[in-house]
Structures are given as structure tokens and as C-alpha cells.
């Protein structure tokens, strides 16, 4: 199939939102360095942060090949309205329970997204998706183990985790906000679409939560936190970007 303009635009939109999600969640994960509940978790969150930021770089490089600016310029010079990340990833790390629940929801979605993209007709994307699948396997494993252990870790732990699940579920559903080019992406075989991704994600995470002993949140009665994909963000994103670009913006033309 010949790619038309809407296919290319759809592809760019997809790459931007994935790259932005990964950059911002990676940035947030890295904030646990030195502050984790135990050294092993500092190290785990840092490993995941490195994978995320590395994956984001690979996607920005694909965008560069499609004619966008170079990765550093794109990542380090945009303001919040120009970012397409979901609101889920931009929230501060908060307490460990929130970070863990976000990690669980986000990484299962990414794992399924990469699995779907491994068959993309856009060969450069299917190649990186296959590589990412190998990395993210360990992220979901880590999340599953901790979600399970903290569910069975006594009353305080269980109630913290359950509250975080309840509060984060709508934010997580916001990840699947449809883009402008869903149909074009589906018909071209570039990507199977957000609705399909959400369906597979629910089939994965809800039974897992139930098996760990949590009360499963209801999809029908939860308002998804949409907006992020279209540049509408919480007040937390711009300060994050100000911090991230603090040094780079001293002289964006300099070699750092």
C-alpha cells in the first residue's frame, strides 16, 4: 500500500505520543534515584528510566528520518502545549504506591503497544518495537511482582495500593485517547489503533489486579483523563520541562 499524506501524518502523531510518553515517564522514573524505599528499587527505577529514555530517543530518531528536527532539539525546546504525552506520565512521582501503580498500568499498555507494532507495515517502527519488547518484558515483570507483594503486605500496604489504583485508573484510560488519524493508521496496517490497544490492555490488567486480590475498578464509571494527546496538560508538565531544559537552554546551539 502506498502511504498518503494522512498516513505519514498519522505515523508522526503516533511516534510523537509514544516518544513523549517514554521521555516523560523515564524522566519521572529517574527521580527515584537516591530516594527509593530500598536501594534495590532505586536501581530498578533507574534501569527502567534508562530504557524508557533510550526508547524515546530511538523514536525521535525515526521522526528525524521523517523530516522532523533532531532528537535533542525536539525533546529539549518544546513547551507543554507541543507535547503529546498522556497526563498519566507527567504527574510527579508522589509516593511509591502511586509510582508503582502508574508503572504497572503504563508498562502493560506499552508492552501490548510494542507487540502490536512488531507487525507494523512501517518496517523501521516494527524493528524498534521488536527490540523494545525484549526490554519491557522485565518492566512488566517487576511491576507484577510488586503489585502482588504489596497487595499481600498487610493492611496499610493494601489500602495504599488500592487507593492508588482507584485514583490512577482514569488517568491510565487517558493513555488510549484516540488520535486524529486512527482510521488511516488501521487501514494502512501501521498500527491497530487505540481502541484495540485499550481492549487488550483491559483484558490483561483487570484479571491481574483481581488475581492479586485488589478490587477491580469499573471502566464504565471511570472518566478517562483525555487531553494530553492534544497538548492539554496538567500544571505539572511545564515545570518538568523547565527543569529538563534548564541547562540546554543556556545555549541551545552549544555542544553539551
Amino acid at each position: 500500500m502506498e502511504f498518503t499524506e494522512k498516513h505519514v501524518e498519522g505515523l508522526k502523531e503516533l511516534l510523537y505520543k509514544m516518544a513523549d510518553d517514554l521521555l516523560i515517564i523515564g524522566h519521572r522514573n529517574s527521580e527515584w534515584t537516591g530516594l527509593g524505599p530500598m536501594l534495590e528499587e532505586d536501581i530498578a527505577f533507574s534501569s527502567m528510566a534508562q530504557d524508557k529514555v533510550g526508547q524515546s530517543l530511538a523514536l525521535f530518531e525515526l521522526l528525524h528520518e521523517l523530516g522532523e528536527s533532531d532528537p535533542d532539539t525536539v525533546a529539549f525546546t518544546r513547551n507543554d502545549h507541543q507535547f503529546h504525552c498522556s497526563q498519566l506520565v507527567e504527574l510527579p512521582i508522589g509516593e511509591y504506591d502511586f509510582s508503582m501503580v502508574r508503572h504497572f498500568f503504563f508498562d502493560h499498555a506499552e508492552a501490548i503497544r510494542f507487540e502490536m507494532l512488531a507487525d507494523s507495515v512501517f518496517e523501521p517502527l516494527s524493528m524498534v518495537a521488536r527490540k523494545f519488547k525484549g526490554e519491557i518484558k522485565y518492566h512488566t515483570m517487576h511491576a507484577d511482582i510488586f503489585m502482588q507483594k504489596l497487595a499481600a503486605g498487610g493492611e496499610e500496604s493494601f489500602s495504599r495500593m488500592q487507593n492508588s489504583i482507584n485514583e490512577t485508573f482514569g488517568l491510565a484510560l487517558g493513555m488510549f485517547e484516540p488520535g486524529k488519524y486512527e482510521e488511516a493508521l488501521i487501514e494502512s496496517g501501521i498500527f491497530g489503533g487505540e481502541a484495540e490497544l485499550q481492549r487488550r490492555w483491559l483484558d490483561k490488567v483487570l484479571p491481574l489486579l483481581e488475581s492479586f486480590g485488589y478490587v477491580v475498578p469499573k471502566v464504565e464509571s471511570t472518566e478517562p483523563a483525555f487531553g494530553g494527546r492534544h497538548g492539554i496538560h496538567t500544571p505539572h508538565l511545564q515545570p518538568l520541562l523547565d527543569e529538563m531544559t534548564e541547562v540546554f537552554s543556556i545555549d541551545p546551539g552549544a555542544d553539551w
Binding site: T33, Q50, D72, V247, F248
Partner: peptide, 21 residues
């Protein structure tokens, strides 16, 4: 880490500080 200028430095500094931990 959160202020490192550019991908290369950001990735390297994350890995470095992780090593220290």
C-alpha cells in the same frame, strides 16, 4: 539527571548515578 542537557548526557548520568547506588 533531570537537568542534563540532551539525550546523550541524560542517559549517561542516569547510568552513572545508578552505578553509585
Amino acid at each position: 539527571i533531570t537537568r542534563a542537557p540532551g539525550f546523550r548526557r541524560k542517559l549517561a548520568l542516569m547510568a552513572k548515578v545508578q552505578d553509585e547506588v
